[in-house]
Simulated scan of single mutants.
Amino acid sequence: MNDATEETRIVAQRWFDALGSGDFETALATLDDNVEWINYAPVPGYNDDMKWIGTVRGPAAVLGTLQVFTGAVDVKSEKLVNLVVEGEQAAGIIHEVSVVKETGREFDIEFIQWLTVRNGKIVRWKSYTDPSEIIRAIRDDKTAEVAR
């Protein structure tokens, strides 16, 4: 294993451990001052119910999106299932079970966080998943009321 891979593994593991335990302060400390945070692209009428998605830069903006997420969703469990690291790239597979606060509906997803690490900091973060379960949990009560 080369030095870049080892450094990336250490930073990524710190990120995932902190995030999984709800320690946002430690998680944010792993981010570069100019981190590019890409949490899907909002698509009007499809996934824009997920108010925390979009692209932002910098730890303060990332914290803002995390606060919007935790304001809307109660995370019941979030577990790193697998971590693959090569050079400055890391891909973590996460299993998450959460409840949308407004509807009380649960969603159970797996998603990938793709990290780029340079000089001991995460400079790019991108998330990949099928958001259908999340969208269904957000819209569930609204859909049920329309059907009544």
Rank of each mutant, 00 (worst) to 15 (best):
D3R: 09
A4Q: 14
A4L: 15
T5P: 08
E7G: 13
V11N: 11
V11S: 11
A12R: 09
Q13G: 02
F16K: 00
F16L: 00
D17G: 01
L19Q: 07
L19T: 09
L19I: 13
L19W: 09
G20C: 14
G22Q: 07
D23I: 15
F24I: 15
L28H: 02
A29G: 10
A29I: 11
D33K: 08
V35A: 07
E36T: 11
W37C: 13
P44T: 02
G45M: 04
D48M: 07
W52Y: 14
W52H: 11
T55Y: 04
R57T: 03
G58L: 04
A60K: 10
T65Y: 02
L66I: 12
Q67S: 07
Q67E: 10
V68N: 00
A72P: 00
A72W: 00
A72S: 09
V73Q: 05
V73R: 04
D74L: 12
K76A: 14
K76T: 10
L80Q: 05
L80R: 00
L83W: 00
V84D: 05
E88S: 11
A90I: 08
A90V: 08
I93Q: 06
H95D: 03
V97L: 14
S98R: 05
S98H: 02
V99C: 06
T103V: 01
T103H: 01
G104M: 01
G104F: 01
E106C: 06
F107A: 11
F107W: 10
E110Y: 10
W114V: 11
W114P: 00
L115F: 07
V117D: 05
S127L: 12
S127N: 11
I134V: 15
I135Q: 01
I135C: 03
I138R: 10
I138P: 07
D141I: 14
D141T: 13
T143G: 02
E145T: 09
E145H: 08
E145W: 08
R148H: 05
